[in-house]
Design a protein around this nucleic acid. Structure first.
Lengths: 242, 242
DNA sequence: TCAGTTTATGTCATAGTCTGACATTTAGCA
DNA sequence: TGCTAAATGTCAGACTATGACATAAACTGA
């Protein structure tokens, strides 16, 4: 394993058996127009993610060394850290993307919608998007496997909670702007932080168990939580049942 | 810094100037009856915590090596990891203790109190306990410095959020038992998870800025959040303003 | 097609976290 | 005083992460 260098400085890399076969896993170019450099980057990144998730699922997050991931894809360990800030980062890749999608979707909801309605619809959109993007792996969608992985790995759970916490602010900013709430004022929708943070955390918590049911089950879950919070929100925001 | 080893294998450890002076920092035995062995353990642990927080405050969490902490207390690096599971652990020491106090206090609240009232009172008790336990350091209570440290260190924030998340379950279990809610049922107080998780997380978020005002300011903050959630709770639980 | 530039990777060295195994010291006690 | 167990020290090593520099590959323009 690793590399051997002879006295003339010629380095022979000793590859894992599956090394060469691993790289083209995600196949051809998604965008043929894209210059080859960027295409290869994307391929390498996707291959790293794919290999990482496979290994995480097979042997657990903590028991998978970065070295094993890079060996599987046949790149240098250093390369991993050029694509991802740290080991957590690669596991939370999808989470981060989905969160961004959610905030974007929230910002794009029509102004006539109640905050809660907007959140709900943005949530649905994101769920559908996730399902459309995800592909099956061992008979189960990749995103579900990721959720399970995170839920069962303390370090990842912590990181993803912080992520939700941080993004809660972003989401609330979007909502506050929609509702013309002065950013500095006391009227800033603290409650929505609560909805956002709590519901998201709770939904995440139950995703593992209810996730099999797909977007519908998740939406039902969301509604169950939101219904309980709705009266309070309705008292302070323009009421409307979505 | 560190150690120097000559060609005969003799290792000379280069200690920080304050090394020897650091150990007796927390002075004599708190419980003279306690056997010396346990007393020394406690002293070492406290000295480690104290040195760690000093260093974290001075140069930041990430830029403080475990080695520096152990040098300051004049123990082996290995010893650190016998007292604390990891570097995070020492920074969250107080958080963990305070959370435990809170859950205990919650369980001890009289049954006649509404869940929200019980949470509030347990929260107050804990705050007062924290203030009583904490001592000034550079003119500011230690616990406040810890809060600031956590808030400004991503890794610590993540860990403490997970801690809140995990303990939320514990707290809700306590509440569910108080209210005779069947643990498995749908009547399980989801809302209280929300209160617990959201309010606690939010309070934590504002602790840094409002913490100067002491327990009163924190309680006011808690009330501000709780007031908004109260109507919802009141609709589903026995109402009572406390 | 070639030379020059930029970008992605490889390679090497190193700091820092954390763990296991074993040796040494210390407290508590017969 | 000597035995026992607990605490700590010592040593080796795996793993994560980063900086510095070298090399290879992809682009650019003539």
């Amino acid at each position: 394993m690793g590399s051997v260098e002879d006295r003339f400085g010629v380095t022979t890399v000793l590859r894992a058996p599956s090394a060469v076969a691993a790289r083209p896993r995600l196949g051809g170019a998604s965008w043929p127009d894209e210059p080859r450099r960027g295409r290869k980057k994307r391929q390498t990144r996707d291959a790293l993610i794919d290999a990482a998730l496979d290994l995480f699922e097979a042997k657990g997050y903590e028991h998978t060394a970065v070295r094993e991931i890079t060996d599987a894809v046949d790149v240098a360990e250093r390369t991993f850290f050029r694509y991802f800030a740290n080991k957590e980062d690669i596991a939370l890749f999808f989470v981060r993307r989905e969160m961004d999608q959610f905030v974007d979707a929230l910002g794009a909801r029509p102004a006539r919608e109640t905050p809660l309605t907007a959140v709900r619809n943005a949530f649905r959109q994101t769920l559908e998007q996730i399902q459309a993007d995800s592909y099956l792996r061992n008979g189960e969608p990749r995103y579900l496997a990721v959720i399970k992985l995170i839920d069962s790995t303390p370090a990842l759970l912590a990181a993803s909670l912080r992520f939700i916490y941080d993004n809660g602010d972003k989401g609330v900013d979007v909502l506050a702007e929609r509702e013309n709430v002065d950013p500095g004022s006391d009227k800033r929708p603290w409650l929505l932080i609560a909805i956002y943070g709590a519901v998201m955390a709770l939904v995440h918590r139950d995703w593992r168990t209810h996730g099999q049911g797909g977007a519908e089950a998740m939406l039902a879950l969301f509604d169950a939580y939101a219904d309980q919070l709705a009266p309070t929100i309705a008292g302070r925001w323009r009421p409307s049942v979505g």
